[in-house]
């Protein structure tokens, strides 16, 4: 009964590559957070240096998807799965960029200013990292309910983002000489907020692959 064995193998290969990419992105986020926490420049460099590997994985996934479309002409769920793999790879690549931005904070924000904001940054990053992890679990099973649940957590990141933004602005008002590093911190805050948005996109794509409907999560 089961036909198109070659196609299913292609899809499995794409899934595996996407999961490998997700694991690397998650690992880089963890490392970047640890690097900022411990002011470890070597760890930060390892995050920055491995980003091209993530970019290369995205290209590899896109290439595999293109070949599968060209050779197998997938339709219905098969086609949506391929489209969604391309979209998720793109979101993971952007999340990888945000890990790199966080690692670069070591050179741009003084340890003093960072230590004031770090508890909020840590909370945002930890929620984001767990979201990345759980969204990939949802992807493996194309579990739309799980994806919806993961996306809901983005609201927690948004609340922390607004809170930290207010704190940074008020710190800059009190000490105008800190505007430069304060602005870097505003960007880091923004990148972590975007991280949550990208995971939400991934969740929306999982629901789409499963149902064929575009949800707004």
């Amino acid at each position: 009964m089961e036909q198109r064995i070659h196609y299913r193998e292609q899809i499995r290969g794409i899934h595996q590559e996407l999961l490998r990419m997700g694991v690397l992105v998650e690992e880089n986020l963890n490392k970047a957070l640890r690097a900022v926490k411990t002011q470890n420049r070597e760890l930060a460099s390892s995050v920055i240096d491995s980003d091209p590997r993530i970019d290369a994985m995205q290209l590899e996934i896109e290439e595999r998807c293109t070949v599968a479309i060209a050779t197998e002409q997938p339709v219905a769920t098969d086609l949506r799965e391929i489209m969604v793999a391309i979209k998720i790879a793109s979101d993971l690549e952007r999340i990888g960029d945000h890990a790199r931005h966080l690692a670069r904070a070591l050179d741009r924000v003084s340890p003093e200013l960072m230590s004031e904001s770090f508890p909020v940054i840590e909370s945002m990053a930890e929620i984001g990292i767990a979201m990345v992890h759980d969204s990939l679990d949802a992807y493996v099973d194309l579990d739309a309910d799980r994806a919806r649940e993961v996306a809901l957590r983005d609201q927690q990141i948004n609340v922390l983002h607004r809170d930290l933004y207010d704190r940074i602005i008020s710190a800059m008002k009190k000490a105008p000489e800190r505007v430069e590093e304060g602005t870097s911190l505003v960007f880091i805050n923004r990148f972590l907020e975007r991280l949550g948005d990208h995971v939400t996109n991934i969740c929306e794509w999982i629901v789409y692959a499963r149902t064929g409907e575009h949800p707004e999560l």
Partner: peptide, 18 residues
């Protein structure tokens, strides 16, 4: 029918599974 069929049998057929 080709992008989001409702019936599993339709999906299986257009996807070449039988």
């Amino acid at each position: 029918i080709f992008f989001n069929p409702r019936e599993e049998r339709t999906e299986a057929h257009i996807s070449g599974r039988f």
